[in-house]
Design a protein around this nucleic acid. Structure first.
Lengths: 215, 215
DNA sequence: GTATTGCACTAATACTTGTTAGTTTATGTC
DNA sequence: GACATAAACTAACAAGTATTAGTGCAATAC
């Protein structure tokens, strides 16, 4: 379990031009390589347990050389987390401003989580635990953003209830966190056994999380 | 969010007799105090980011003095994790050996998670992330125990399906991890806003996770 | 061809880490 | 009161931490 480390970013060539071309489709600057490697390591060992040497080793460079590309270890974490936090905020905003009805918005949120989980394979893992290692102004910003996201999620859930699409006896708060937990943890199991397609995964989750599995 | 640290184990008296009596009901040996403080800190900052000094400070002692009671930092983590892993294994075994039908077993599992989450407030948080810092023989033992637990959970789910209580189109694996994610993350939100009773919480979860919230 | 830049290197920094050794202090037992 | 024991303390350890400074090389720009 969780012993995933495809090392598509491990190579030894000297970085001459700024963007290295691995093949026609994959271009990565050293900074991107560092962030990628860090995400993978932070996910596997945690932020604190990951040393700059660990990161450097994966990138194929000495630890001190990393500082030619990044400001600090903390900055890497910050960049990674802000990136996905913004992706979620943007996705939520698009859904809110759409013309979908409340239930459709709920389903769109599930799609959003599935898409971002696949897109940000590694760094998305950080939102479940490693964000606590953010330092001051960013930590507060992150927490604020996260709270807003949850409130907007709750608001859509509430709308569903007032529309009569959710059973009146349902505790909306419990439902919210129950759903969010599943969605946050998606990354840890979404390709564990078999490989389900993005579409099928989202479809199944809509059933499990919304319609219920018991007949 | 998650800024929970009621410090009911912070005090300054000298430990004279082995079990310190705080009041009529709460007795704790120094070792238990250390494990309690550690669980709280590991939960808040993570295993690696928590120093022996941090723990010592909460217990009210110098870091070196901790070693009069425990063998190592790693041993603390090991003790905490084995403790809850065993509790889950025991609970699962009781349920499997019961005469309940498959759906009732599923509901009993939800009760189990709710009960253990409340009972082991802090150390239960470790099962979502900090277990990766276990070292060799225990790490393998822990992973094995966890896998077995998930397989048994899956087996009950499968029984529900063959009994015709779960819609045939439902992907059992996705349902399993979706449910397990919610249950594992319970600790992080179960008393976030309002204080719901154990009974009501379990009841609501059974609806959210099994029957579905959307009508 | 010279200047400039990008980037990796070595070496050193100032700390912090978990843990051990050795000593002192206080209590409970006979 | 003497003794054993439990458990605190101080001091020191070896190793590892993120980060900075300074150096050298190789490609690019002019």
């Amino acid at each position: 379990m969780q012993d995933i480390h495809s090392d598509y970013l491990r190579f030894t060539e000297r970085a001459n031009a700024k963007p290295i071309t691995l093949n026609a489709n994959i271009e990565m600057t050293k900074k991107e390589q560092i962030k990628n490697a860090s995400a993978k390591l932070f996910r596997k060992k945690g932020f604190t347990a990951t040393s700059m040497q660990d990161i450097a080793e994966v990138v194929g460079v000495k630890a001190a050389s990393l500082y030619n590309h990044i400001g600090s270890k903390q900055e890497i974490l910050k960049d990674l987390l802000i990136n996905i936090a913004d992706a979620f905020t943007k996705g939520m905003s698009d859904i809110e401003n759409s013309t979908l009805n409340a239930i459709e918005k709920l389903e769109a949120l599930i799609d959003l989580h599935v898409d971002l989980t696949i897109k940000y394979r590694d760094s998305i893992a950080l939102i479940t635990g490693e964000w606590v290692h953010l330092e001051s102004p960013e930590l507060d910003k992150y927490k604020k953003q996260r709270n807003e996201y949850e409130e907007q999620f709750l608001s859509i859930l509430t709308q569903c209830k007032t529309d009569g699409h959710i059973h009146p006896k349902t505790d909306i708060d419990i439902a919210l966190y129950s759903i969010l937990s599943s969605l946050h943890w998606l990354y840890s199991w979404h390709n564990k056994n078999k490989n389900v397609s993005r579409i099928e995964l989202a479809k199944q989750l809509k059933v499990s999380l919304l319609r219920g599995i018991v007949v």
